[in-house]
Amino acid sequence: MSLYQLSKLLFRLNRDPQAQAVFLSKPETLLADYNLTEEERQAFLSRDVGLLYILGVNGQILMHFAALCGIEWSDYLQRMRDAIKQYGPVRAGIYAMTTSPDEKVAG
């Protein structure tokens, strides 16, 4: 688990238009600076925002990554709910889910 490194990669991506351009063409080149597990690498490269949520990425970072990936808001929320069913509860960070994955709160 290297949640800090994973979060830092996404933090940089949210701030840096050059990194965003690289992400859209050759995303794997961004990984060189970060010490990630294979699961984290795959979650990032496959744009699996649901799994990134389960791995503990803070939503204040993740929602912008989702937007960069063209994932619409309600879809973003649904992917996190689906990931709870697929992967189980959030494993780290401060964002444990408090409602049921079958409950749509808003959006």
């Binding site: 949520y53 803070n58 939503g59 204040q60 993740l62 929602m63 929320l77 996190m80 709910r81 709870i84 964002y95 889910m97 408090t98 409602t99 994955p101 709160v105 808003a106 959006g107």
Partner: peptide, 10 residues
């Protein structure tokens, strides 16, 4: 509030 999580809107 529970922003940017599946609980968003609670």
């Amino acid at each position: 509030h529970w922003p940017a999580t599946p609980d968003s809107g609670r």
